[in-house]
């Protein structure tokens, strides 16, 4: 301890703190500005066009080789199914990566809403995954590697849209299951997902996300009476690859309109950037303060001042 001066120690501590803080801030800003891959694809869901035929569910089932459904895909009684005391409609699970739900907003026709992974630009599931099983591909899909997945289900808690399902039926190798934008079989080969291709009404429009945003606003502009003036997913949670247009206010057709516009990771990024500073710098700095304070208290003892005192502690040596 006697090999360092107080001035040098304090200067080094402050420099360390400043460096940590600056680096952390820069990293946070850089990561926070990610708005998706520029060439990323997306789907525009126009709920004013959907007729609730469930063809997309059937196409998904076949494309992803999912198990046989409990009811045929032309059975529209599923729209009356509710769960948890009538508070929840159907949601995607291990057997169905997409479902269509019917809503009856006051004073209007029924509105059908297709639910699947929205493929966030900056996905909360990906942020929460500690084994890095998730990937946001440059085509826009949020995919996951089931060989890496350890089944912790953090992503199910993290997802603001309650999308990832879990293979509870598998006793020995349960993994998370969700829509992957048909990435392996279609998207990465430049083809639209199966649900888009089957849709008889073109309620689903496939294209580059940035083009879809323009198209969506053009539709609102052309037919202001038909649409609510909002594109859900353009800004929500940092932007999603799948976006929705609606004739009814979004809160009336099952959307969470209270979600923030910043990605979920923005909530913790600032905090996380201070963790290295607190864990690494603070102990060293306060130990230094403590030792210096303790040392100053011992100045009166002659034993503390050895023969090399003048060389290494020139300043203090001058005082004594």
């Amino acid at each position: 301890m006697s090999g360092i001066s107080r001035r040098r120690f304090l200067a080094a501590s402050l420099a360390g703190c400043a460096a940590t803080t600056l680096c952390g801030t820069q990293k946070a800003l850089a990561a926070g500005s990610f708005t998706g891959y520029p060439e990323g694809m997306g789907v525009l869901v126009d709920m004013t066009r959907c007729i609730g035929c469930r063809s997309c569910e059937a196409a998904c089932n076949r494309e992803q080789n999912l198990p046989a459904p409990a009811k045929p895909f032309d059975d529209l009684s599923v729209f009356d199914e509710t769960f948890h005391g009538g508070t929840q409609k159907r949601r995607p699970d291990e057997n169905a990566y997409t479902v269509v739900n019917r809503y009856e907003p006051p004073g209007g026709k029924p509105v059908y809403r297709k639910v699947q992974c929205n493929h966030c630009n900056e996905p909360a599931c990906l942020s929460s995954c500690f084994v890095n099983a998730y990937t946001k591909t440059q085509e826009g899909a949020v995919v996951y590697n089931s060989k890496i997945c350890v089944g912790c289900r953090n992503c199910m808690i993290a997802c603001p849209f309650n999308i990832p399902g879990y293979s509870y039926s598998s006793a020995f190798d349960p993994v998370v299951k969700k829509c992957i934008f048909c990435h392996e079989t279609r998207l990465k080969n430049g083809r639209p997902p199966a649900c888009v291709e089957i849709c008889p009404q073109q309620a689903l429009t496939f294209g580059k996300r940035r083009e879809l945003i323009k198209i969506a606003h053009q539709r609102i502009h052309n037919e202001p009476g038909r649409y609510v003036d909002h594109l859900y997913g353009e800004k929500e949670l940092g932007g999603t690859s799948w976006m929705y247009l609606s004739s009814a206010p979004f809160e009336q057709v099952g959307f969470d309109v209270a979600v923030q516009n910043e990605p979920i990771i923005a909530n913790v990024k600032d905090f996380l950037s201070t963790v290295p500073m607190v864990l690494a710098i603070w102990p060293a700095m306060f130990t230094g303060f403590h030792l210096l304070a303790k040392r100053r208290g011992g100045h009166g003892h002659d034993d503390d001042h050895g023969g090399d005192h003048a060389a290494s502690h020139g300043e203090e040596g001058g005082q004594s």
């Binding site: 059937a58 046989a68 009811k71 045929p72």
Partner: peptide, 18 residues
């Protein structure tokens, strides 16, 4: 076959998915 309907309809009585 695609819609799992008609001759391809699920054999068992409809069970809730959840």
């Amino acid at each position: 076959a695609f819609y799992r309907a008609g001759a391809y309809a699920p054999k068992t009585a409809a069970a809730p998915a959840h």
